[in-house]
Nucleic acid binder design. Structure first.
Lengths: 153, 153
DNA sequence: CATGAATAGTTGTGGTCACAACTGAATCTA
DNA sequence: TAGATTCAGTTGTGACCACAACTATTCATG
């Protein structure tokens, strides 16, 4: 069977997609840079701030961030040094370490959050429009569902 | 003025988007891994194979790949060592170096391309459906246009 | 022309991340 | 309960990439 190549409209859709992503990512990073944090840092702060007691087990946080265990260890090293996060032991399971948001870290997030939300609006939500946002959400739900289905197979 | 926070549907749309991207990227990488190349390598091969004489100036290639000059230098180092690409001087401007696709590199791309196209179909085009592909293409065109507009301002 | 600015590319350095190997702790099993 | 297995996290190592600094070449301006 010959390869089922992409037709022109599929081609442009695909290239539109992958070429836009790096630029979009760069825009978000640039808007957070004045706060001295990266998107990666910001996502850690968000997850921890939403978690009970502002803390998460390393493995759960790594899964939430789609980061490898070692990747999270190293990222947290930097955030601990910056004073935004502390490590704390778990009394019931001595294997686990909690990543715990400090008041400094919370303040950092509170300072950065408005700018980041603004950034998401400017570069993502506003250009898409309300209908576009709903469409995009639905489309990515389809992709996500498909990825999960393949993964479990 | 208080911050204009995201409402629930905006929130889910945004998270849907950013959490799916790493998984999608990982799926494409995994499908190319058996060929011993990464998405980055593959994109180099694609651009060079489509270029006149199968060669491009380093700076043009870097721009096409949205890579820094040094990033392209290092990526090409690996591909030259693998024998897929050669560097060649330009006779009319001695500053420029061409990245030139070798026959080995072309063969590598021809071998990988069907699997990659298949991968794009499976993880991206098929889940979206024909209508979804057109919608997504249009939505990313909006985002791209907006980014470009802001950049020139 | 002559010189200063712009351009093309590489190298030094440092940040981020994954994989493999490892420690220590909990759990399962016989 | 002894021993094997699984699990949580860190460390060693190497890949990839960006920024800054540098060389070499070309262009632009007087």
């Amino acid at each position: 069977m010959p390869t089922n190549w992409l037709d022109d409209s599929e081609q442009t859709a695909w290239r539109n997609f992958i070429t836009t992503l790096p630029d979009l990512s760069a825009a978000f990073e640039a808007d957070l840079a004045p706060h001295g944090i990266t998107m990666g840092d910001y996502e850690v702060l968000v997850f921890l701030s939403e978690a009970p007691d502002q803390r998460m087990r390393m493995c759960d946080l790594a899964a939430a961030l789609r980061l490898s265990p070692s990747g999270l260890t190293r990222r947290l090293d930097g955030m601990v040094k910056a004073g935004w996060v502390e490590r704390s032991a778990c009394s019931s399971d001595r294997r686990v370490m909690y990543a715990h948001l400090t008041s400094t870290g919370l303040a950092k997030m509170d300072a950065a959050a408005p700018d980041h939300v603004d950034s998401v609006r400017r570069h993502f939500l506003t250009p898409l429009g309300d209908d576009g946002v709903q469409q995009l959400s639905a489309l990515f739900t389809l992709i996500r569902a498909h990825l999960h289905k393949l993964q479990s197979a």
